[in-house]
Design a protein around this nucleic acid. Structure first.
Lengths: 229, 229
DNA sequence: GCAAAAGTGTTGCTTCTACACCCATGG
DNA sequence: CCATGGGTGTAGAAGCAACACTTTTGC
């Protein structure tokens, strides 16, 4: 029966990545300007074709490393796009991933090389093919994930203030959160370590920096602790 | 640049379906015995290859209709499996779906034809390839989904008692739920219509049958109502 | 009447929410 | 000293979990 595989069709298989970042202005999206036809000059997601010796996860990591210069990026596959005519040039089945990166780690040198630009998630340009739909689905998947796992820390620098963390969640859910209540809820989870350093840029009094304690999270999780936002 | 597509590799693309059902005994899984090599005689999921004129969703529906005789089945794509050696016979990229069907609607005639059998989710045989991993991931995805959307009704007959619904959730989450509290919580959502009929099989007093009101759910949802279990 | 499941009510506890209210400090 | 954000406290509401209790009816 193995020979029967020959009778089945084969397809181009690709990955497309929605790259999320976060800064003072809010949640951002890294898009690039296509340098080739079709749709040259239009904005699109970062993507690439699957190589024979790699899995889709590996392909996505490869694409992201090439574009950002970073390794071991947080990645989640959230859907596969397979409409017959989604890419007018050829039949391409594309696995869609979202990636979370610390925006400060991203090398600006690479922006020029790929014609890349950070866009606010609430205001990004029209994208080619079904990439706009991918972005919207990625946002839904991100919002869902953020309620179940502390992924926020993938988007923040190693040291951050409670204000920054709150601002991130406000940006993800497009809502306002009560500063006092947010602080109490987050700190009650005991996943943050306070550092003896303060950020004095945003207030006279200064706000302590905190650090996410990954070990404690893993320990809690293995004991049945549930992160719920 | 379009010509460059020719230089890229192509792959076999498939769908695999985890078919969930529910009866008095609990949550079940429909598996079939492979009638061809490799791995002939072993248990596997239902699957099939992608056809050129269809999307993956359509391929999954086609596979399910062939096997169950049903149309418009509830389907969710939850992951893509793409390890290089996951299928020893060929490189196959497979989109994994879970399906929810009303077990009573499933034609038993088709069981013989495909060598299919319902298995309890807590006790199913060893499966070929990475199908066991697919089942476990499907269960995680199902548990997550069941907290966000009232998918339970896809698994129950049109008319059901609160006891049946509770038993379904107990089966999905492998836990015991307080009958009184469960009833109050479910009814407080106002998504069920009580019918003037009782089930007298499971108690002397009899339990009212209820029906899920899809219209009311859609209306609530569009007004920002959140189903949360 | 007894058993057993259906269905209702109650109570105490935890959590959430909307604030009020100090604290610290640069200007 | 004042404006501003950091950080803490609190009272009322809401939700939840455990469990008592009442209803119904076949046996």
């Amino acid at each position: 029966m193995a020979i029967d595989f020959l009778y089945f069709n084969t397809y181009h298989v690709a990955v497309d990545c929605i790259i999320f970042g976060f800064d003072e202005e809010g949640l951002k999206l890294l898009l690039c300007k296509r340098s080739f036809d079709p749709e040259k000059g239009k904005w699109s997601l970062m993507g690439g074709f699957l190589n024979p010796e790699e899995s889709l996860d590996q392909a996505a990591q490869r694409v992201l490393t090439r574009i950002t210069g970073l390794k071991d990026i947080y990645l989640e596959q959230f859907d596969v796009f397979s409409d017959v005519s989604r890419d007018p040039a050829a039949r391409v089945v594309s696995a869609a991933y979202y990636a979370l990166i610390k925006i400060g780690d991203y090398s600006n040198d690479l922006i020029a090389e790929f014609g890349a630009k950070w866009w606010p998630v609430s205001q990004y340009p029209e994208l080619i093919f079904d990439h706009g739909q991918m972005v919207e689905e990625a946002l839904v998947a991100l919002r869902l994930k953020a309620k179940q796992e502390p992924i926020g820390f993938e988007l923040l620098p190693q040291f951050f203030t409670i204000r920054q963390l709150r601002s991130l969640y406000e940006s993800i859910y497009q809502t306002q959160l009560d500063p006092g209540n947010f602080r109490k809820k987050i700190l009650s989870m005991k996943l943050l370590d306070q550092l003896p350093i303060k950020d004095k840029e945003n207030s006279k009094r200064g706000a302590y920096y905190y650090e996410f304690n990954q070990q404690r999270y893993e320990r809690f999780k293995s004991q049945g602790f549930l992160f719920e936002m």
